[in-house]
Every structure is written in structure tokens, then in C-alpha cells.
């Protein structure tokens, strides 16, 4: 019994220690954001990698999410003769929740994994040690550009996802459910408030920070060998995804509980 309790206690202490390590890593990374030297070439490269190259996956996810949302809303709301509410349901759901959360989860899968794998491989092949010996701080050269790029780019990706998602809902509503297009757009704009969009973009920025920090942390501290890099990649995606869902609840509460 004592051994069982000790194992639970040990596991919990390990968990707390790992939170501390991630927090310390994040704090160090953020402190370097404002301290020179800066590496603008690296930042531009990451903006391209994280932003532009993620557009297809985020766009596809958004359009199908919007289409399914319109279909399901119609199925449910037509029972109460409230089918006209579909436009407002789609736009509010997409901008407040589905755009930022599903978009960020997709980016966590694509970018979180890529960052962890790249930094993990650099750790294993001593490229990170090489940076140190070449008078270049790996934190500034590798971590800061990825973190800053993710924080900047995620809201932009989510903004695109919002537009595409709403368009998906429009397509299904107008061409499959035979709504009037002009009325649908009018209702979309009528019920949409600035706060809906802004809250989603703020969430996206926070999620971007989480994705980059978890990818960098796990890659930077990767263990030796191919298995070490594989584990780092898995941990980066899983931890970023859980953090996104966890943070989403608290951010939603912060923005909308009155």
C-alpha cells in the first residue's frame, strides 16, 4: 500500500517538476524576445513555415467544419422551426470557438510536430551544441523566432479560417438547404459582433504561444536517438493539444462569463 501511494506521489512530483521546467523554459524564451541580438531572417523563415505553409490544412479544416456545422444546425433547429438561426449559429460558433480551436489543433499537429522533430534532430546531431560554440545563443536563434512567428501568425490563420468557415456554411445553406443567399449574408453580419472575432484572435495568439513553446521545449530537450526524437514529437503534439483545450475553457470564461 505504501509503495502504491509512493508511486502516485512520485508521479505527481514528477508532473509538478515538469510544469516547472516548461514554465522556466517559457520564461527564458520570452525574456529573450526583447533582448538583442535578433535574427530577422530566421523570423521571416518561420513566418513562412508556420503561416503560409499551414494555410491549406487550416483552410480545408475550416471549410468542412463550416459545412458540417450548417448541416447539423439545420437538422436540429428545423425541428423547432428555427432554421433561420443557422447563419448566426455558424458565424458565432466559427469565430468564437471552432476557428481558433480546430485551426490551432491542426497547426499543433503540423507545426508542433515539425518544430519538435527539427530541434530534436539538431539536439541529437549536436547542432545545438555547435550553435553554442559559434557564439550564437540557441534560445535566441532557434526558439525566439518560432515563438514570435507562431504568436503573430496564428491569429492571421484563424482570421482566414473564420472567413472560409463562414463561407462553408454559406455554401451548404444556399446550395444544399436552399436558403436565400442575400438573407443568409445579412443575418451573418447582423449577429456578428467585434468581440466574437477579437476573442477568437486573442485565443489563437495564446494557442500559438503554447504550440511553439511545447514544440521547442520537447525538441530542445530531446533524448538521444531516433526514439528520443519520436517521443519528443509525440509529447509536443499531445501536450500542446491538451493545453489548447484547457486554456480555451478559461479564456472563454474570461471573455464571455458575465
Amino acid at each position: 500500500m505504501a509503495r502504491f501511494l509512493a508511486s502516485i506521489g512520485g508521479g505527481f512530483l514528477d508532473f509538478l517538476a515538469s510544469i516547472g521546467r516548461v514554465g522556466s523554459f517559457a520564461g527564458t524564451a520570452l525574456s529573450h524576445v526583447v533582448r538583442p541580438p535578433f535574427y530577422p531572417r530566421q523570423l521571416l523563415q518561420q513566418l513562412w513555415q508556420i503561416g503560409w505553409l499551414s494555410l491549406p490544412v487550416v483552410g480545408l479544416t475550416a471549410i468542412f467544419t463550416g459545412m458540417v456545422l450548417a448541416l447539423q444546425s439545420y437538422t436540429g433547429f428545423s425541428r423547432f422551426e428555427a432554421a433561420n438561426a443557422i447563419a448566426s449559429i455558424v458565424v458565432i460558433s466559427i469565430t468564437r470557438e471552432l476557428g481558433p480551436v480546430i485551426g490551432s489543433l491542426m497547426v499543433a499537429g503540423r507545426i508542433g510536430a515539425a518544430i519538435a522533430a527539427e530541434l530534436g534532430t539538431m539536439r541529437v546531431t549536436e547542432q545545438i551544441d555547435a550553435l553554442d560554440t559559434l557564439a550564437t545563443d540557441p534560445m535566441k536563434y532557434l526558439v525566439v523566432p518560432r515563438v514570435v512567428a507562431a504568436v503573430i501568425v496564428l491569429p492571421l490563420l484563424v482570421l482566414v479560417a473564420d472567413v472560409i468557415g463562414v463561407f462553408g456554411g454559406y455554401l451548404v445553406s444556399v446550395y444544399a438547404l436552399e436558403f436565400n443567399g442575400a438573407n443568409y449574408l445579412q443575418r451573418t453580419l447582423q449577429y456578428l459582433e467585434t468581440e466574437d472575432v477579437v476573442s477568437g484572435l486573442v485565443k489563437a495568439s495564446v494557442f500559438g504561444l503554447m504550440i511553439a513553446i511545447m514544440g521547442c521545449y520537447h525538441g530542445y530537450n530531446s533524448q538521444r536517438g531516433a526514439a528520443g526524437v519520436g517521443t519528443a514529437t509525440t509529447n509536443a503534439v499531445v501536450s500542446a493539444s491538451i493545453l489548447i483545450l484547457f486554456a480555451n475553457f478559461f479564456l472563454t470564461q474570461l471573455f464571455f462569463s458575465r
Binding site: T125, E126, Q127, D129, A130, D132, T133, A135, D137
Partner: peptide, 19 residues
């Protein structure tokens, strides 16, 4: 440490070239 490392050049076992 960074200032001292500026005096040093290092050849790593696997090269450690940036891909």
C-alpha cells in the same frame, strides 16, 4: 562563457553542420 567560447573553434564528431 560566451566570450570565452569566442576564442574556441570546435570540430564535432559528426560534423554537426546545419542542414
Amino acid at each position: 562563457r560566451a566570450a570565452l567560447r569566442r576564442k574556441i573553434g570546435m570540430l564535432f564528431q559528426g560534423g554537426a553542420l546545419f542542414d
